[in-house]
Design a protein around this nucleic acid. Structure first.
Lengths: 202, 202
DNA sequence: GACAACATACCAACCAGTTGGTATGTTGTG
DNA sequence: CACAACATACCAACTGGTTGGTATGTTGTC
């Protein structure tokens, strides 16, 4: 049924894991080849450079996570605010296992490469902003319903959710404790409830 | 009066700038030596390894930023909530110049090294948690005054502020736009106001 | 047989760390 | 004070292993 995974797919899948565990610079091409079970010839057949692989990995990440959120159950709620809060509950539920398993590839990469690899920065930006944009519509509907006069924009609040989630990962990494990320998402959820409770807030 | 800066100090100061711009792994020992105007011999006289330098740089960073916040004007407010909000205004005001100039050294380093360099992770944790702990007392006083029955702990909220600020930097790096970080700090400020407005919130 | 998908063998550049040395204090002692 | 013994701060040159990337096969398939 499913065709055997090609070398390209195996490299991309390995990249998600290894770069999240070691970072972009510390990950060598040979690390990726070994994890994928292919040779360097195969690697440079499919990618022109290590940077090219990182850009492709960011796009692969966008595809994987985009699909994950698109199919998630929180979209079933009738109320747009329930969908927004359900997104946060879903993000919190994803925090399990080891840190490299639940933290964000593009957040990790952009931290290292924003000043040195513009192509990776841009691919990371697209992924992060794409996640935010998937939220804007529901935030906008909830705003019209519950807080039409609020000072903040839906786009700004959507970007804020992504920033908080990224920050939660950094603190978790520093403390080597997934619980710190969960606590921060709890605070974020409380903020959103607050945003939609009183239209004069903000 | 002030003695000429020693090689060690020059290396540490250079490290703050260069590691923030390029990340830990991409920064070479020679990069640091060149920026500091010293030789590799001097480097390895003062630091046993590149990792050792990173730990020392994180501690240097803690000292520099700790002093900056300790001397900042927001402590003058009589009301503890004003001091907490004043801290956020101060953090926002620090966002100027280029990204490597205002983003956080330890947040950058821990992202790359949490799984590979435990000593750097621990030094980064101490710096981040230290920043949070400097806030806990004022948050606690404000909580007793304005929201004694709130569900959240002062420590958890203090850690949350640090997480949001770190996340703000990541989004700014991805978008190559300091304004994104400012917007996120505005949201954080609104959240804190909300936390202390109604003791039933949370 | 032409072309894509790989594998093998290899290289030049780079990089963390070493070596062997000099110059300038500092300290203990008669 | 004088002077030996030692420590600190620093430098220039070198090294051995690593790394991104290349050049050249080989193999399966249309």
């Amino acid at each position: 049924m499913t065709p055997p995974p090609s070398a390209k797919q195996k490299i991309l899948d390995s990249a998600l894991t290894i770069i999240r565990a070691k970072g972009y610079e510390a990950t060598t091409v040979e690390d990726l080849c070994q994890a994928a079970g292919v040779t360097k010839g195969a690697f440079f057949h499919h990618f022109t450079s290590k940077e090219d692989l990182a850009v492709a990995a960011a796009e692969h990440w966008s595809g994987v996570t985009g699909e994950l959120f698109r199919l998630a159950p929180y979209h079933r709620h009738d109320d747009p605010l329930d969908r927004v809060l359900g997104y946060l509950d879903f993000r919190k539920a994803l925090i399990r296992g080891t840190l490299p398993e639940f933290t964000c590839l593009v957040g990790t990469m952009v931290q290292e490469t924003f000043g040195t690899h513009p192509a990776i920065r841009e691919a990371s930006r697209k992924s992060l902003v794409g996640n935010a944009e998937a939220l804007v519509q529901d935030i906008d509907l909830a705003k019209k319903k519950y807080a039409p006069g609020a000072a903040w924009t839906s786009r700004s609040l959507a970007l804020h959710t992504q920033a908080v989630i990224q920050g939660a990962f950094i603190l978790s990494k520093a403390c080597d404790d997934p619980g710190v990320a969960m606590d921060t998402i709890d605070h974020l959820r409380r903020y959103l409830e607050c945003c939609f409770k009183d239209p004069n807030n903000g």
